[in-house]
């Protein structure tokens, strides 16, 4: 009980805490929902790639905000007033820059896959590691040059305490975008994921659905970076979905359960992180993995332990302990 009082106290006395809770919940839910398709379409590597590839976009956005913003908005203001004013626009600028970098990468990857004889996953690897490297070089050079706060560690593992109101609005909009896209295109998504060729014979534009999914994925990945960081986004996409796939056999339910697992992991992970005073992003991922492990062992139909247990019960019922039942 003391722990709960402690948590309530944290939420009441720190302005960042409720914002962090809301942000991570949104990330958990939207990654969970979209992750169902990422897993079923074998797009995990693409998700990981898009997350890493946003770094140069962030750098470019940062420079653009500093240069253009200073020129346009800071006329007659002191240095401090100016940087405060620009900070209000950081989140949206970063979001735009990141999404552009992610989209550019996905176009590059698709182009390589279709026009050059490089294997699909190799093409993904080449593009995202290049983008990531450019981003890291960019970040280290601007932080040296201007003494500004663009922290590589924040980008890599998230900085949930730095969530701004603008970040929250962006996350909320992305969430609405994800949910409505999936609802509107559900039939096409289902058909193209399950049997792409059959879907195409039905007149469904499989390329259009692919690019739509890449667009949604870029948005989700970028919206998640503040919470869990570039490296861990992919875990939020695949672990809850993989867990849900162990628990049910219907796509609609996989999507809903995966969203709920993402939500639960985010809330639990954040609160545990607050209690033990550690970084929330990795803790959320650890909770995700723990839930996955529980499903691996105890899923009612597919759990490892459950299957053993059922076999044992069957053996007992047959009254012969030595019968080998497969």
């Amino acid at each position: 009980m003391d722990l709960i009082y402690y948590l309530v106290d944290v939420y009441e006395t720190n302005a960042w805490a409720p914002r962090a809770l809301l942000a991570s919940s949104l990330v958990g839910i939207m990654c969970g929902i979209l992750g169902s398709f990422v897993v079923l379409r074998n797009m995990s590597l693409i998700g990981d790639a898009l997350a890493h590839a946003v770094l140069p976009g962030v750098v470019v956005a940062y420079i653009a905000i500093s240069v253009i913003g200073t020129a346009l908005l800071c006329d007659g203001l002191t240095h401090n007033e100016c940087s405060d004013l620009l900070k209000e626009h950081h989140s949206l600028g970063f979001f735009a820059g990141s999404v552009l970098a992610a989209l550019l990468s996905s176009i590059l990857i698709t182009w390589l896959q279709k026009n050059v004889r490089t294997e699909n996953d190799a093409a993904i690897g080449i593009v995202f590691t290049f983008m990531f490297s450019i981003g890291v070089i960019g970040i280290s050079s601007i932080s040296k040059g201007h003494g500004v706060h663009l922290d590589l560690t924040d980008m890599l593992i998230g900085n949930i305490l730095g969530v701004s109101d603008q970040d929250l609005w962006i996350s909320l909009s992305v969430m609405v975008f994800v949910v409505s896209s999936i609802m509107i295109f559900y039939r096409s998504l289902f058909a193209t994921t399950f049997q792409p060729v059959v879907a195409e014979t039905m007149g469904i534009k499989i390329n259009l659905i692919h690019y739509l999914l890449m667009l949604v994925l870029s948005f989700v990945v970028v919206a998640s970076i503040r919470t869990v960081g570039v490296i861990l986004v992919v875990a939020m996409l695949i672990t809850p979905a993989a867990t849900a796939l162990l628990l049910t056999n219907r796509l609609e339910r996989v999507i809903i359960i995966s969203g709920l697992i993402g939500f639960a992991a985010a809330v639990l992970g954040l609160n545990i992180a607050i209690l033990v005073d550690t970084t929330p992003g990795p803790m959320i991922v650890v909770v995700c993995t723990f839930l996955y492990l529980m499903a691996v062992l105890f899923s009612p139909s597919k759990g490892w332990v459950t299957k053993r247990w059922n076999k044992k019960k069957l053996r007992m019922a047959l009254g012969n302990e030595n019968t080998d039942i497969e």
Binding site: F194, Q195, V197, V198, M202, R250, L251
Partner: peptide, 30 residues
């Protein structure tokens, strides 16, 4: 397109996919 139905080879199908008989048959209405 609506008038043509393609019945693919069984080998290329992901039989682990989380879907039921009913859902797959209903695809015919898409």
């Amino acid at each position: 397109r609506k008038k043509m139905a393609y019945v693919p080879q069984k080998d290329g199908v992901n039989w682990q996919f989380p879907t039921t008989v009913y859902d797959v048959v209903l695809m015919g209405r898409f």
